[in-house]
């Protein structure tokens, strides 16, 4: 089953609502002016994702992973490419880029920042899923992205949604990329959520 262009647009909008809420929470919590946008999303097979991940090379990325089960089951992974991770953490914590201190606070900082964004996106989607989901404990990991994809999103039956989000912190002129990878066991529950969302939009 594939998503139509219309459905992809609606899902993209759900992602944007999610990351927007996450950014609001970060701004409230940290007093910063962070903006996160998802310009577009794409759907892929696991093979296609693995190919893209291989192209990304051996660079270590920082990721926050969350597994979920229920009517919608799968894994959500939020990946911060190295430069983006460094820019974001140094902007949020005031540590100098490239310093060893930055390394030591990266895990601590990205665990929570990732948790806020991923939870907001999950919240935005699950608002339109009728059944409650069961979640794993959020898991922070650093590795080459293709290895992380292999560890967390390993079911060939998974439908993959890849969202490349762009963040910017206005007053600090810092920006970067966050990659959201959603692997879901079945698109059915997701399609229902998309339809419910579209209906809500239509009803205003």
């Amino acid at each position: 089953m594939k998503l139509t262009e219309d459905q992809i647009d609606a899902l993209g909008e759900l992602f944007n609502i999610g990351v927007g809420k996450g950014a609001d929470m970060l701004n409230q919590m940290l007093g910063c002016q962070i903006r996160i946008r998802v310009p577009h999303i794409e759907t892929l097979t696991l093979n296609e994702l693995e190919k893209q991940a291989q192209e990304f090379g051996p660079k270590e990325v920082s990721t926050v992973n969350l597994s979920f089960e229920g009517s919608l089951s799968g894994n959500a992974m939020l990946a911060f490419p190295p430069q983006s991770a460094q820019n974001l953490v140094s902007a949020l914590t005031g540590e100098e880029p490239g310093s060893p201190e930055l390394d030591s606070v990266t895990m601590d900082t990205l665990s929570e920042v990732g948790n806020i964004i991923i939870n907001s996106v999950m919240g935005s989607i699950t608002n339109f899923v009728n059944q409650r989901l069961d979640y794993s404990v959020p898991h922070y990991a650093e590795n080459a992205i293709h290895k992380l994809v292999g560890n967390h999103i390993d079911d060939p039956e998974y439908s993959i949604i890849l969202a490349k989000a762009h963040f910017s912190i206005e007053n600090l002129e810092v920006d970067g990329e966050i990659i959201l990878i959603f692997g879901v066991g079945s698109l059915e529950a997701l399609l229902q959520a998309i339809e419910a969302f579209k209906k809500k939009l239509e009803s205003g």
Binding site: N119, R132, Y135
Partner: peptide, 20 residues
């Protein structure tokens, strides 16, 4: 308050880091 509220609504677990 807002984040803990999401947990009561069945949202995913929360992380509060020592850094923030």
């Amino acid at each position: 308050f807002l984040r803990i509220g999401e947990v009561f609504k069945g949202g995913p677990p929360l992380v509060f880091s020592s850094k923030f």
